[in-house]
Amino acid sequence: MQLTSLSVQHVRRIAAAQISPADQTNLISGPNGSGKTSLLESIHYLATARSFRASRVSEVISHGQTALIVSGELKDSAGVNSRVGVEKTSNTTRLRINGEAVTVASTIARLVPVLTFNTESYSLLNGGPANRRALLDRLLFHVEPEYLRTLKTYYRGLKQRNALLRANTTHKQVVYWDHQLEAVANRLDRWRGACISTLNEYICASALNERIGSLELEYRRGWVAEESFSNLLAANSVKDRDAGTTTVGPHRAELRIKVGGKLAKTVVSRGQGKLIIATIVSAQARFIREYALEPPILLVDDLASELDRSACQAAVDALISTKAQIFFTAIESSDLPASLCESAKVFHVEHGQVHPTVMDQ
């Protein structure tokens, strides 16, 4: 999927802006606080109706305004155009695709796959298991049509089982939900395991992996592999009643990021961590392109910081090789490799104003 035009109103410092991005590589330059990241945030809103850096929309709407509005034209790999619009106030969300109202954000999210690479991405290495499970869930949402429904079914069943555990109801009532959960848990596990296996193939083939040294994703399903899920739930019933919650299952799955057999967060520097994230994001983009049959949009914020010239060039090459449409940001265009600047469409942002720039040859 490619974004061919973008219109932004009242997103942080950006009062109003319109751009027509290039099909593949775009560079947004400007001083700190000028609105570069806000432009990426606007694209993320268009794709998900959510911010990637604020939990409350009131933090994103420009001062003195009551709503933000983002709209854009998109073109898929078959050349079919779609128009998407998002309008958000502190209390309401209005979504449209081709002029028709949409009631759930997942409809837009499925149409516009987007991946972000920014300072928050370090949570993949340093954050809790939920951050890494979310990576899996987002990927599988885009490539497996039944994944979101199955995941919601699992969590509804889990909620029912946990309520029964806390209410100290009969064993028979709990066992009913044990069997209901087993089928959906096994489906989630199969999808997740296959996804990680494919991502590891892409990571192994990445040129960045030579710089990092044996990067690998290790998947742990959330329960003992040799046991059937319902039998394990039954065996854990006393423990679960005491805890008031279900202690095994896909909701406890873990994705461990390892380098040379050790947890990455214990052995890598910030710069190496950035290369790891670039490798994983590149693998995600390839996974979406090959299995959803549409390349995603990549939002890459401040890539150059904490990387030397050689490492930055390697990260850029890996990201561009995905054939995704990419939006990079940098304070100065010269912060990024010359090869990127020469091939990219460049926009300069200052004081919330966005202008296309012609690079010196």
Results as ranks from 00 to 15, higher is better:
I320A: 09
L188Y: 05
S310M: 05
Q353C: 10
V300Q: 03
D317W: 06
V259T: 10
L95F: 03
R94H: 12
G352E: 05
T119G: 01
Q361G: 10
L275V: 05
T107A: 15
S62W: 00
E294F: 07
Y219E: 02
K239A: 15
R56D: 11
L158F: 11
L124H: 05
A134R: 15
P337D: 03
M1K: 02
Q24D: 08
E182M: 10
A344F: 00
L111M: 12
D242P: 01
T322A: 05
E73W: 00
S106G: 03
L140R: 03
R96N: 08
Q2E: 07
A105K: 03
P295I: 12
A194W: 00
K265C: 06
S121M: 00
G260H: 03
H251N: 05
N26A: 06
W191G: 00
T198A: 09
E306F: 01
E201Y: 06
L181V: 02
R211Y: 13
S29D: 05
A47C: 15
H348I: 03
Q180R: 13
C341W: 02
I276G: 03
E59R: 08
A134D: 14
T66M: 11
G72C: 09
G249W: 06
P113M: 10
W177F: 11
S82D: 09
Q325S: 09
G128I: 07
A183I: 13
P295L: 03
N98F: 08
V238E: 11
V224H: 12
T92W: 10
A278M: 06
A207S: 14
Q65M: 13
R270L: 06
N168D: 13
I108S: 02
D240I: 00
S90E: 14
H44Y: 15
S269V: 07
T322K: 13
V224E: 13
L208I: 04
G79T: 03
R96Q: 14
I326P: 08
L140V: 05
K239E: 09
S228T: 14
D335H: 15
H142K: 05
S334R: 12
L124R: 04
L74T: 07
G260P: 01
I280M: 14
L164I: 06
G99F: 08
M359P: 01
E226Q: 05
Y291C: 02
A315W: 11
A205K: 11
V349T: 08
G260C: 00
L74E: 07
D308R: 04
A22Q: 13
L215V: 00
A330M: 12
L319W: 03
L95T: 10
A22H: 12
I320K: 09
T107V: 14
N131G: 13
K274C: 00
